[in-house]
Design a protein around this nucleic acid. Structure first.
Length: 889
DNA sequence: ATCCTCCCCTAC
DNA sequence: TAAGGTAGGGGAGGAT
């Protein structure tokens, strides 16, 4: 069996082994699903935290003709964090359409190491194995059988005193305290494991995706009937039931009626926070946010699952696909919750559509969703509360008052702990009581807007509309866990990483910001170590913002400002417990100039003023910390520039790109002009005259070419110098590899061409060989499938690379079901069929990449959606034929 | 009166 | 051990 396995392995992954031997870093993990080895390339965008091992593991395993433990081959930089990560191999392959979480299907005792688990699983394959491998592992298999197998899940409820933990769990000895003190990549790792980060980012992600959907060609249920008189608007609010738990147990129906919770760790200390609990668990009083130890005290036989972020993503994608199928106007609230605006004729029963959607969600995801239906968003949202779990509720207009009468005010959106307390003081606990308070009084007590809103809400009035597209007003990142600094070097390093993170997010959204806000949490006087391990505990929060004249999103500027603002707080860094950086007053990144300008500016400034360009405008409003920052400590616009000492470090005037200079914000231009003692302005003026003199036939393209030449020249001249080394901190290449984990590929695809190209250049070379000349793009999708091959051959690239570089081009605006449309689809499908045939044995990774990309892109274009829908079965059939099983995308 | 900054609160 | 984020809205109070 083993030799069969190895043979198959060699056959399938020859080329990968070849790449491995070239020293490429791969991460992979063996998973036994129809005897297939799964290998993914090391790219955090794909790894999702799986263990990363050195390539030798594969080669050595083959040489030894046995499956060696991967542990000694694990990459050091990942060893600490990655091993504790749950296994998500199962997310890659799944069985006959059922995406089973194999790893999660096995109950692991805390002591069971990951490698044991690998072997234990492997034995599933070698049922009648006679080789060393299976014998060697049969004992372990027993061990797992007796303790940990899935069947124990069934009997587990009888073992009342043991709490089960379901997840990949590493050897504990590999785990070390995780904080800013011990992990140089803390920021990056932190976001990878933070559930709140995922919750926070997902909302935007689905909003963004829906925006793409709208701007693409297809949108259904657009109610072609404009005769609105016979229609009524209804709002449906759909919310998945205890999402995090439902998803991880969706393949274990036996657990449905057992108490289950999701959290990071099942350590005996029990200071991990429960993130989500299912309804049986809630019946014991277990709630999100509760410590595990408290939850266990209430329910000793609670089953605890680890997070499975990739599964959440998968289900959320399915969820939104279904919603978009049924409704044009979908407002994403979070990964598992959305509002739909539907128009119905007077005779239609609004409950029917909710019923259909919920049914489809369940059939697709095997997770239940609840729905609330009402005349407005407020009523729909409230109705959902009554509907949960797994139900739906319609509040017709004539029942609104009756429904609201007994409703506690805390159920109203916007009423949190504080507002509830304020109103409780006035002996107001229900909506009917709230109605007795006049609007004036409410506004006086709670502020004008809040008072107005609540006055409306308790009467069932809500004028807000379901908005599919919402403008992003701020982008930021913060960390309030694990933050411990011993000196200013630590804090500075942390700030730099945070800036990289924020910069990447800004780039990902194609925006820049003018106002930079730094928020710091400082241990409150007298507050001891927090109850929560590495938590921030009782803190005082201080924040300060700064508005610059020109919007920024580059790491260099962010770091300069963040560093300076942080310094202005005059804090004892040992007391800092959390830091956040946020940008607001966002502006769209100028895609046409941005890439070039930015790099030149970086070059200019890193060379010219290594001390840093100072912000020109700074505002600092009163708060308690203002007194400790004497105004003298604040930079003024002129102080920074007037230091003539910088002049010796300036690049010669001949090296300055005047086009860039011309486009600088006036303040910065003045600053630079000052540095060059007025020479800049003179040159610009004389150039302008020259330009006017020359004919105006200079093509834009030529300008761009010149720009590039100048920029390249500058780069060449600066590269070997010290200046470029000092600048390397700010280079994109420096922030790319690590932080790519934070980039949603859908975002990457949405980036302006130049920015995307820039980012792609930072990826391993085999992924980005080519950019396509304009000529090769035209009419490509219209051509026969042989043209595609010709194109790929000529460009010497992979299809996935082409897709990635040409995301924009690939979403043409062609009307569905036209002849053109059909021709494209047929041709493309033919091409894909052939491409699959060519790659299925030699490069399964490429096929995986292609279909992942297509999946993403298909949300933008109904053409691509149709292409994807048609070709996916071909791929799956081929996978099934060659390997058995199914590729899980 | 209006804008801005620094908070706080809320929701997921 | 554990991963307490993100973003919007709005109020208080100061600056203009």
């Amino acid at each position: 069996m083993l030799s069969f396995f190895i043979k198959k392995f060699q056959l399938c992954y020859r080329n990968i082994v070849y790449k491995l031997k070239q020293g490429m870093l791969l991460f992979f993990k063996l998973g036994i699903v129809h005897s297939v080895v799964i290998v993914l390339f090391e790219s955090r965008a794909f790894s999702h935290g799986l263990p990363v091992v050195k390539p030798d593991w594969i080669a050595d395993s083959i040489a030894a003709n046995t499956l060696l433990s991967w542990v000694p081959y694990q990459l050091v930089e990942h060893a600490v964090t990655e091993t504790s990560k749950q296994l998500k191999l199962s997310a890659f392959f799944s069985e006959k359409g059922i995406s089973r979480s194999h790893h999660q299907g096995i109950l692991i005792q805390n002591e069971t190491s990951l490698s044991d688990k690998c072997k234990g699983e492997s034995t599933e394959l070698t049922l009648s194995g006679t080789d060393n491998f299976s014998q060697e592992n049969s004992q372990e298999s027993k061990h797992i059988d007796t303790n940990d197998e899935l069947k124990d899940v069934k009997s587990e409820s009888e073992e009342d005193c043991s709490t089960s933990y379901v997840a990949g769990k590493s050897s504990d000895h590999l785990n070390r305290p995780h904080s800013t003190l011990t992990d140089p990549n803390f920021v990056e790792n932190y976001f990878k494991y933070s559930r709140l980060h995922f919750i926070g980012t997902w909302r935007n992600r689905y909003r963004k995706r829906f925006f793409n959907f709208l701007s693409g060609t297809g949108s259904k249920n657009n109610n072609p009937n404009n005769d609105t008189e016979n229609l009524r608007r209804i709002v449906i609010h759909i919310d998945m039931d205890c999402f995090f738990v439902s998803v991880v147990i969706r393949n274990f129906p036996d657990l449905l009626d057992k108490p289950v919770a999701v959290c990071h760790s099942n350590n005996p200390k029990g200071t991990a926070e429960i993130s989500s609990a299912n309804y049986p668990a809630r019946s014991y009083g277990i709630k999100a946010g509760m410590f595990v130890r408290d939850a266990k005290a209430r329910c000793p036989h609670l089953t605890i699952f680890s997070y499975d972020f990739s599964a959440y993503e998968e289900v959320a994608d399915q969820f939104y696909s279904i919603l978009h199928k049924h409704c044009k106007k979908v407002q994403a609230v979070s990964c598992d919750e959305a509002f739909l605006a539907v128009s119905l004729s007077l005779n239609d029963n609004p409950e029917n559509i909710a019923e259909i959607i919920r049914k489809e969600i369940f059939e697709t995801t095997r997770c239940t969703a609840s729905a609330g239906i009402g005349e407005n968003m407020l009523l729909a949202r409230l109705a959902t509360k009554s509907a949960k779990p797994n139900g739906q509720c319609f509040i017709p207009l004539d029942k609104v008052n009756e429904y609201l009468d007994k409703l506690p005010i805390s159920a109203l959106p916007g009423v949190g702990y504080n507002v509830e307390e304020k109103l409780r003081m006035k002996e107001v606990e229900t909506c009917s009581q709230l109605r007795t308070i006049s609007k004036d009084v409410l506004q006086k007590d709670l502020g004008s807007k809040m008072g107005d809103m609540l006055w409306n809400y308790c009467r069932g009035i809500d004028h807000s509309a379901v908005e599919a597209v919402q403008e992003t007003k701020s982008i930021g990142a913060e960390v309030n866990w694990g933050v411990r600094f011993k000196d200013s070097k630590d804090s500075e390093n942390f700030l730099m990483n945070l800036c990289k993170e924020v910069s990447l997010r800004l780039h990902g959204c194609g925006v820049q910001g003018r106002t930079i806000t730094l928020k710091v949490k400082v241990r409150k006087k007298g507050a001891g170590e927090p109850v929560k391990y590495m938590g921030c505990g009782d803190c005082e929060t201080i924040s300060r913002s700064l508005t610059v004249p020109g919007a920024i999103n580059d790491v260099g500027s962010l770091h300069r400002i963040a560093k300076q603002t942080f310094a202005s707080f005059h804090l004892d860094v040992k007391e800092v417990r959390g830091v956040g950086l946020k940008l607001s007053r966002l502006e769209l990144d100028n895609p046409s100039r941005k890439g070039i300008e930015e790099s030149r500016l970086e070059l200019l400034f890193s060379s010219a003023t290594r001390k840093g360009k100072q912000p020109v405008e700074q505002s600092c409003s009163t708060n308690h910390s203002r007194e400790d920052a004497p105004s003298g400590a604040r930079p003024s616009s002129s102080s920074a520039v007037s230091q003539g000492s910088n002049i010796s470090e300036l690049p010669p005037l001949s090296h300055i790109d005047l086009d860039v200079v011309r486009n600088l914000p006036p303040e910065i231009f003045l600053e630079m002009n000052g540095l060059y003692k007025g020479e800049l302005r003179k040159i610009l003026e004389s150039q302008q005259q020259e330009k006017e003199y020359n004919s105006e036939s200079v093509e834009r393209k030529d300008c761009r070419q010149q720009d590039q030449e100048i920029s390249t020249r500058m780069q060449r001249e600066l590269e070997p110098s010290e200046a470029s080394c000092s600048k390397s901190n700010y280079c994109k290449s420096d922030l790319m590899p690590g932080s790519l984990s934070q980039v949603d590929f859908s975002i990457l695809e949405n980036l302006p061409d130049e920015v995307r190209t820039d980012i792609l250049k930072q990826l391993p070379p085999h992924r980005v060989e080519n950019q396509f000349p304009e000529s090769s793009k035209s009419n490509l999708s219209l051509g026969s499938h042989s043209k595609w091959f010709e194109m790929l051959r000529v460009q010497n690239c992979l299809l996935s690379e082409f897709l990635l570089s040409n995301a924009t081009f690939l979403t043409p605006n062609i009307s569905p079901s036209s002849e053109e449309w059909d021709a494209i689809v047929v041709n493309s499908c033919e091409f894909m069929k052939e491409y699959i045939r060519q790659k299925i044995e030699s490069d399964i990774e490429e096929l995986y990449n292609c279909f992942r990309l297509l999946k993403r892109l298909s949300s933008k274009s109904s053409l691509l959606l149709e292409f994807y829908d048609r070709t996916l079965p071909l791929l799956q059939a081929s996978i099934g034929e060659h390997y058995g099983g199914k590729l899980h995308l």
